[in-house]
């Protein structure tokens, strides 16, 4: 989850979009973010496009205020996907910068966890194939869709391995396309759960824990969520983590202070939001989704401080 808000970059030492490309700037920015926000970990990269870029799509790197986005998906249909050789993501310069930045941070700060963030299999697939066609092909081109997902998932496994070799302590998988709101329960079960689990299992084999973030409302996909192999489940603000915890036994919950509140609310609202979350016995307190880059630093500080005081 990108926490590189504009407020943190104001001093101008390490800024985006340049830091998306350069290991030194990236680790420097992660360092700034950690220090100024009070989050208890480093989280990189600051984008969700490097995986798709490595597998063929073009990316617009955005600005200091705006995250990178897919310019054009490279393939019109799952049938057209050109399968690149194994370890394709490693060949991307930005991916190498991310891994180098992870190494720098984990060596410099062995006591602060470095989280490597990966875009999940469905989201990456829907970023290399035109997403409207892709979604239809989940129904009418099942074999080819599964082949693409398996290919993407294996590439992500290699990439996660690289991050872990570099020193990542945790891998966080965010898969915004794998939301119940888009897929519904059947497709979530058929496409989201197995590939997220394939990825999580491979990461577990390397001895590293996994956070899985699922966007949007999860009410139609509760069964699927219970089948996920992540060590912690992070969800969006509209989901009651307290309820989810009572429904899925043994679930480690992460979240879910509204990013909207963090951007538009004030410090007092943030504190009262934290109080309500603390009351639900959430295991890992975090923003509910990616922070808006315009989120004021004072609100993020109020959040991390309130959590620490509450503990």
């Amino acid at each position: 989850m990108n926490a590189a808000v504009v407020d943190v970059m104001k001093n101008g030492a390490h800024t985006l979009p340049a830091a998306h490309h350069d290991a030194g700037l990236m680790s420097g920015l992660a360092d700034d973010v950690q220090r100024e926000t009070g989050f208890e970990n480093f989280g990189i990269p600051f984008c969700m496009t490097v995986e798709a870029e490595s597998l063929g799509s073009s990316v617009d790197y955005g600005t200091i205020k705006c995250e990178p986005k897919i310019g054009k998906e490279s393939f019109p249909s799952v049938r057209d996907v050109e399968f690149r050789p194994k370890r394709a993501i490693e060949k991307n310069k930005r991916a190498r910068a991310i891994v180098d930045a992870i190494s720098t941070l984990s060596q410099k700060y062995p006591d602060i966890p470095t989280i490597g963030a990966i875009t999940g299999p469905l989201s990456t697939s829907a970023s290399i194939v035109d997403p409207m066609t892709f979604l239809k092909e989940l129904r009418r081109g099942k074999n080819d869709a599964h082949r693409v997902l398996d290919y993407v998932c294996n590439q992500l496994i290699d990439y996660a391995g690289l991050m872990i070799e570099g020193g990542a302590d945790v891998i966080s998988i965010a898969d915004p396309t794998a939301t119940g709101e888009i897929l519904g329960p059947l497709m979530f079960g058929e496409y989201a759960v197995p590939y997220l689990n394939q990825l999580a299992d491979a990461i577990h084999k390397l001895g590293i824990p996994v956070i899985i973030h699922i966007c949007g409302n999860v009410k139609t996909v509760r069964k699927g969520l219970a089948m996920l192999h992540g060590d912690a489940l992070s969800v969006d603000a509209m989901v009651s983590l307290g309820t989810l915890k009572s429904e899925i036994s043994g679930l480690t919950t992460m979240g879910n202070l509204s990013t909207y509140m963090l951007e538009f609310g004030d410090e007092e609202k943030v504190r009262s939001g934290v109080r309500s979350l603390l009351g639900q016995n959430i295991d890992i307190m975090a923003p509910a989704c990616g922070l808006s880059t315009s989120t004021p630093i004072r609100n993020i500080r109020a959040f991390t401080l309130a959590v620490k005081e509450g503990l």
């Binding site: 119940g180 709101e181 519904g184």
Partner: peptide, 11 residues
């Protein structure tokens, strides 16, 4: 009513 989801609606 959440009987259909995005793939179904697109089809």
């Amino acid at each position: 009513e959440e009987e259909y989801f995005v793939p179904e609606l697109l089809m």
